[in-house]
Design a binder for these strands. Sequence first.
DNA 1: TATTGTTATACTCTATAACTATA
DNA 2: TATAGTTATAGAGTATAACAATA
Lengths: 152, 152
Amino acid sequence: MNMVKKPESQAGKVRKGSTGWMLKILCTSLDAEMSDELRRLGLNLGQFAVLMTLSEAEGLTQSEIGKKITMPGYATTRTIDALEEKRFVERRKDNRSRRSYRIYLTDQSRKVVPQLFAVVGKVNEHLLSALTPKEQKDFMKILQKLVLSRTE
Amino acid sequence: MNMVKKPESQAGKVRKGSTGWMLKILCTSLDAEMSDELRRLGLNLGQFAVLMTLSEAEGLTQSEIGKKITMPGYATTRTIDALEEKRFVERRKDNRSRRSYRIYLTDQSRKVVPQLFAVVGKVNEHLLSALTPKEQKDFMKILQKLVLSRTE
DNA sequence: TATTGTTATACTCTATAACTATA
DNA sequence: TATAGTTATAGAGTATAACAATA
């Protein structure tokens, strides 16, 4: 066999010790889990993000939604097109600016939102179940700090 | 104005308190940073992952590489095609199985690998710089535990 | 002039499944 | 029959830039 295995090489340490690498693995795994759950509701991750944002504050404009979830304009347009076609959101004329729409949930999607919360809860719970209560608390606190440091 | 803002709604808590959501935000941010750095070296994230894997153990088959980084066969083929075209890897006949190749770095890519380590180091350092030394240690430990729980 | 939203277009990524050649 | 690797092909996602309407 001609495989050259370096004795717990520098590379091994770089990779396994890399915070970014570990975050990536976790994210890939979580994305797959979320996508599976959402597929059953006929949604993809982008559509899910928009619905979650609206469940927090309805009547946002498209650009406000896009900004909240860092989704570019063209993608926001198409995601909302898809959600509108499924009757999950509604575009209403803005009564202040005639070039903006305000986006609202529908009766149909309001029934789905609790299921979205449930999915989020389930996936988070599954993730955190590997940790002790103290670790869970530490982890959340650190994540909040990191997210803040990257978004301001 | 017809925006309906719910008073720090259930949804707000679900979203902001969601570990998965925060992980996603971090990952997106890190991916963008990594991609920017790698673009200068003419690499994308998939190619980077393959090179890092090879820098740890050369002479793997394509399917072994794909398995290590959870990349499907068709993507592994194409990533290695692209790397081969850039003279960053070399396919050598396996001397045991005539249907497998063994993949090796080249002199050229061996010069690039230290730069890859440097990029990883830089991005990790930037990420962790928002945390105290104690938090950094806790964070790494927790991530290792979580990755382990998801990959076995 | 700048902004909101849309669209044409191209390009990349991802996924399926069929295929060759081995084992 | 199963596996390693390749490829055709289709679909989804991403990006750029141009555009109309409006501010």
